[in-house]
Amino acid sequence: MSRAKIRAKLPTKSADPTVDIELTVNGERVSAEVSTRMLLSDFLRHELGLTGTHVGCEHGVCGACTVLINGVAGRSCLTFAAQAAGCEVRTIESVANKDGTLHPLQEAFRDCHGLQCGYCTPGMIMNILSSFNSSAPLDLSDEGIRDIISGNLCRCTGYQNIIAAVRQAAKAMSLG
């Protein structure tokens, strides 16, 4: 605390074994040396600075950490960074339009008040986009939409406005 105190020599790295990985994140080639046990969520957030991907439970239940891995929704908290080597990863930071305007799904979340604290929202959006991108037919009934987002917990909204947002976005994107 005192300015006279000489700064202690503190460690700067762990003794974890590391591995070199190369992957594509939001269209950019990325290479890094990472601990073999580093989670993809930690890699994206703390190594790449893409903090839009959130971590809610670290056991694959809440869906907050959902990203697209090769176009399909995946839990970045249950995936090691090393497992994503060679993959194309997309995160929430890649969703808005290049000119900074919101993607129709983001716009719909805003129009419908589909978010409150916003913590679950990026994972929710990536999961919905995965369904939108899928070749499987899109069921836009209430039940169908509930099913689409049934892997994502939200503690704030009660989901009703999210369901409305999914429907609005699908319509705007001429899906379903």
Partner: peptide, 24 residues
Amino acid sequence: IKRNIDPQLLIGEGSFVDDIPLAG
């Protein structure tokens, strides 16, 4: 009225505690 805060949260630019960059 639509919420002022939403665009920031929707594009992944929220600032939750673990998002604050603290070197070292």
